[in-house]
């Protein structure tokens, strides 16, 4: 089965996930609405802030709209479709990879796309709405926005899987993985000019927050092709690191006797 076949398989998994999520309509809808409100409150904070101050480290309200649009859409895309990316550490520690290992599919896409986030659909919706606020509705801007956001989503998801795969080496690292993903997101939600020296270096390498916030904003705002290429390079590198860490780790997988179910 080639790449097209694999994509068709992932498409089937997503349809199945959607059907599974819709089994509980009230929960599905309330989580989406809840996340929309949650993001909205955070957004209002910035609106109030820029009502008093015109600019913070080169960012005005226009860049904040864009930053929110990129961030929430990237987060929403990553964890709505690759819902298991945030669960990898727990799945490894509880011996829940057995199901994937007995089936003839490449384990990583099968694992990652076997669950769909619910609340993250709210992020996805919020991202689209926030982009409409930027007023950049010409085709080039939309194209750059979609491309940069997709790459940021890849970096988000691969980072989550890589940190989750540390469970192969250090036992249950679910908390650590969760903190690292939160750090990745939190640092991305502020103007990059706030960070200097070592902090800036960390956010460009170990915790690559710059590539899910500042760099995509730069791609859309300045129509910066170089930044887009850089973003693509980081996304590819991030995917390579994920595959490498996971493959090495899988040799150490110990399974387990926990009783599992596929939701």
């Amino acid at each position: 089965m080639g790449i097209v076949g694999e994509m068709r398989f992932v498409g089937h998994l997503m349809r199945l996930n959607l059907a599974s999520n819709m089994e509980y309509r009230a929960s599905f809808v309330s989580q989406i609405v809840g996340m929309l409100i949650n993001n909205g409150i955070y957004f209002v904070f910035w609106l109030l802030f820029f009502d008093r101050f015109q600019e913070v480290r080169g960012y005005r309200i226009d860049e904040i709209y864009l930053l929110f649009a990129v961030f929430t859409l990237a987060f929403g895309m990553a964890f709505t479709f690759a819902g298991n990316a945030l669960e990898v550490a727990g799945l490894i520690a509880q011996g829940r990879l057995d199901y994937y290992l007995t089936l003839p599919r490449p384990i990583l896409p099968h694992l990652i796309f076997s669950r769909m986030g619910q609340s993250t659909v709210g992020d996805l919706t919020f991202g689209v709405l926030a982009y409409l606020f930027t007023g950049r509705l010409d085709l080039v801007s939309i194209g750059l926005f979609v491309a940069a956001t997709l790459l940021a989503a890849v970096i988000f998801a691969t980072f989550a899987v890589t940190t989750g795969a540390l469970a192969f080496f250090f036992g249950n690292t679910a908390q650590l993985s969760s903190h690292l993903v939160q750090a990745l997101g939190s640092f991305a939600l502020y103007p990059f000019g706030l960070y200097q020296g070592a902090a800036r270096l960390i956010l460009l390498t170990v915790i690559p927050s710059a590539f899910i916030g500042a760099v995509p904003v730069q791609v859309v705002q300045l129509r910066d092709g170089g930044a887009l290429v850089l973003l693509a390079g980081v996304a590819i590198l991030s995917a390579i690191v994920m595959v490498g860490v996971f493959r090495v780790g899988l040799r150490r997988y110990e399974s387990g006797s926990a009783i599992n179910i596929n939701i």
């Binding site: 829940r96 057995d98 199901y99 003839p104 596929n262 939701i263």
Partner: peptide
């Protein structure tokens, strides 16, 4: 995996809500 089938009594393969 194409040639074998497996059933683990304590690890169901069926999707729980579907």
């Amino acid at each position: 995996a194409y040639h074998i089938g497996s059933v683990f009594g304590q690890k169901p393969q069926l999707w729980y809500h579907l």
